[in-house]
Design a protein around this nucleic acid. Sequence first.
DNA 1: GTGAAAGCGCTAACAG
DNA 2: CTGTTAGCGCTTTCAC
Lengths: 348, 348
Amino acid sequence: MTPEAVKRATIEDVARRAGVSRAAVSKVIRGAYGVSASMRERVEAVIEELDYRPLISARGMRGATFTLGMELPDIANQFFARILSGATTALETEPYQLVIAPVDPDHSEGYRALEALADRQVDGLIAVSPRVDPRWLEEMSRRIPIVMLGRHDSSVGYDTVVGDDVSGVGMLMQHLLELGHREIAHLTLDDQHTRQGSGTPHSLRLAAYEATMREAGLESSIQVARCDGGEDSAHQATLRLLASGARPTAIFAAHDELAIGVLSALTQRPDASEISVAGYDNIKQAGHPLIGLTSVDQPGEQMGASVVSLLLERLAGRTDAVHEVATPRLVPRSSTRPRIRTKGVTRS
Amino acid sequence: MTPEAVKRATIEDVARRAGVSRAAVSKVIRGAYGVSASMRERVEAVIEELDYRPLISARGMRGATFTLGMELPDIANQFFARILSGATTALETEPYQLVIAPVDPDHSEGYRALEALADRQVDGLIAVSPRVDPRWLEEMSRRIPIVMLGRHDSSVGYDTVVGDDVSGVGMLMQHLLELGHREIAHLTLDDQHTRQGSGTPHSLRLAAYEATMREAGLESSIQVARCDGGEDSAHQATLRLLASGARPTAIFAAHDELAIGVLSALTQRPDASEISVAGYDNIKQAGHPLIGLTSVDQPGEQMGASVVSLLLERLAGRTDAVHEVATPRLVPRSSTRPRIRTKGVTRS
DNA sequence: GTGAAAGCGCTAACAG
DNA sequence: CTGTTAGCGCTTTCAC
């Protein structure tokens, strides 16, 4: 039972078996111009017989690999599942194959995955890590088409697809204010993700939160909590917040996964169970009746589809940068309720 | 602003600039034997200067690509996130890059993704779709190392990693029976996933469910509902089940995502809110206090790590097949409660 | 309409 | 220790 490795058939094998040249076979498999019907038939029969499939990487050395590479941090965040779903659907009718390089959000940097994909000859790149440097992307985009998802860059070399975070947060804050909330806290990621002017979604959401609070005359109630990302981390951060004595009547978490962590923390603290919670992205879990999380819907599927079509346009020759902005939509659910006067700490 | 495509530096460029041969450069980048320190230094300087990175696909034409390909259906199912997490962690210290080919569970077939990866010269393949034919995999494994995750195959050409579904279901059913449940329904996927003898996890879980019911003298209470997979589909199926007049006191869903769909349906049916629900896999959501889903934990991270190390062993030369079985663990939560006598339909 | 020949970027013998 | 040479599997002019 020696598992003698079977080598796959090459274009040469097919050519010899069919009694034609390699070039002829190549034309047949590419559907290129200049092959007689009889030859095509013969060649196709042999291809079938030998179970021949062209090696994409060999093909790539001359031309395209028909592969699109996507770098994806944190597969656990369901919003990326929405994006991916949109992207794969958009690609269904296209001859391109999507491959994903997962990035361990804790360790790796995103650069590594992007470079690994480029080294593997993908025809185009989709970047999702908001932490890769725009200048680096700009440089990279001179060798390979790139679309960046989720960061508000005014790039010239690569395209971007983003949600309108400012208006999304505006709608959400408006909603909370209308419910009577004044002590609204914001739970977001560490400074690396929220540095002013970095163009990351979370930096914009934070800024929009603060701006709204100031405009509402609530500057003194601004309260920003931080966590490392992920449900558990948000859970812990919420407990810390409460332990610090803060008693917001509402918590706006920078994205749904965090918000769900907030909910889980609040559930275990009966004294805080009246706190309203809101998230962002509208991932599937948010809509579950047992969760009922108010959120801002970002059309992830649509954004995923946009990313793909922008990339295909690039591959088709477009050279000027396009920046697409998707419109968010408020989805109120049971996790946000009219403010309840809390004993003591409340100030109105 | 003509974005004149910048070509990347080749090994030839480096060799010329450093005044050495291509072979010398090749040795340097591979850390191979036979290079003087001075030459290494010179070459490395030029590599740095030119920002040279070897093209993996070109390298692949001669030897290995140091790429592992994983075919993944249904990214939305969080259990796969656990597996992926284990796999990427295991690969962190290895020189291999993992790439994922997502499979649209509705449309594509898994074959397509696996072949796409093989065509792209990955060194090894991880298959997760239980629907690809074992014989096909057996054939494929003669050209490229494969590890199949999640199906109980007794293959000779490829390795497998599975959970012990029979014992997992046994523990779960035992739990339900001890709570006093007799009318236990099972919600699973369509026949394609559950055909007897196919070795798929769902076929085994179904069989184990039926066996347990029979052993408990409850053969006449066996009730199997079907859905297409996914939370929504499970939700609908649950409503259909109730509409049919069935009144189980407990529903065992074939995996957690389905179970969560069941919960959402039951929430909207006050008359059925006392039905206990259990799932399988123990995805993160199951543990959320607002969900509290009883489940059977499968050590996904560990399984993901196993898959990777089996594949690396293959690449290192192992030729005999290994079949690994992970041990599941019951995780009781609030979604399963002692049976409540329902009016009418109950039979004890 | 068809095939010969060159070459994509790299590695792996082999000579020097 | 170093460089030359011959491919890996495919596409692509360019003659025939």
